[in-house]
């Protein structure tokens, strides 16, 4: 079953036409990579799925995004519950200037959960799921800002997992990290894909081949080609895709 269906999506910021006639399907519990040169609309597409673009006043869209058979842009759809269901990990690790514990418990707290035992249990499980527990279990009260960049990014993943989402959007989650931290995040993505639908924007094509099952190639606001990652990289059907993945532009 498809987790997310996108139908005739067009996105505008003011007069700029950013996404053009996007039609795609994101399958459940797999990793889908979005590749393409800078400014091609990958991040905008990602942010349309959890309605983060709503924060930009000039944002306007046409078409539908269906999540579990519901139109997420329908007026009766609650944005808070959407963002709980569709978590997001950002390009630069952005933990809050709070303790490690408070960072992970944040999502639960804003959704009204304050039972201490439950919070502790959820925080521990989420940190374990994000492969960070062993490194921080003795210092949950320390500031999250004292962690390394890679640890901070795994904390942000833990923070997202704590909300018990179904989909996790990752916007170039490794671009600010060193190679060792990157490997850890990629290992984590492999582990998480059994339980979550993951959509990852990446500039790194090796990363796309390493972590994803499906890949969509974006260019100038359009999806040029979508396929199984293995197929797209080995025998691309469109010339532009081939040129991009062989490094002729981008």
């Amino acid at each position: 079953m498809n987790r997310i269906e996108v139908k005739d999506l067009n996105v505008y910021f003011g007069d700029a036409h950013i996404l053009k006639n996007i039609n795609t399907e994101i399958p459940k519990n797999t990793v889908t990579a979005l590749i393409g040169p800078s400014g091609c609309g990958k991040s905008t597409f990602l942010r349309t799925i959890n309605r983060m673009n709503d924060l930009i006043p000039s944002f306007r869209k046409e078409g539908d995004i269906i999540l579990d058979e519901e139109d997420i842009y329908s007026p009766k759809y609650d944005v808070a519950s959407l963002r709980k269901k569709v978590g997001m990990v950002f390009q630069k690790p952005n933990p809050f200037p709070k303790s490690i514990f408070e960072n992970v418990a944040y999502g639960l707290k804003v959704h009204g959960i304050d039972d201490k035992d439950f919070l502790h249990q959820q925080v521990e499980e989420s940190l374990k799921a994000a492969a960070l527990w062993g490194e921080v279990e003795d210092k949950l009260d320390n500031s999250a800002m004292s962690l390394s960049g890679g640890q901070q990014q795994r904390l942000c993943i833990a923070r997202t997992i704590a909300n018990n989402p179904e989909v996790i959007l990752m916007d170039e989650p490794c671009s600010a990290l060193d190679p060792i931290s990157t490997t850890k995040i990629e290992d984590l993505i492999h582990k998480l894909k059994n339980d979550y639908t993951i959509i990852i924007v990446t500039h790194n094509m090796q990363q796309a081949t390493r972590v994803s099952k499906y890949t969509s190639f974006f260019l100038n606001g359009e999806i040029i080609e979508s396929n199984l990652t293995d197929k797209l990289f080995i025998e691309p059907k469109v010339k532009k895709t081939e040129e991009y993945i062989t490094g002729r532009f981008g």
Binding site: L82, R83, N94, F96
Partner: peptide, 15 residues
């Protein structure tokens, strides 16, 4: 205050 803090919070469903 960096806007990334606000984004992180909105991204978790906070009002």
């Amino acid at each position: 205050i960096p806007s990334s803090y606000r984004e992180g919070s909105y991204g978790l469903g906070a009002s």
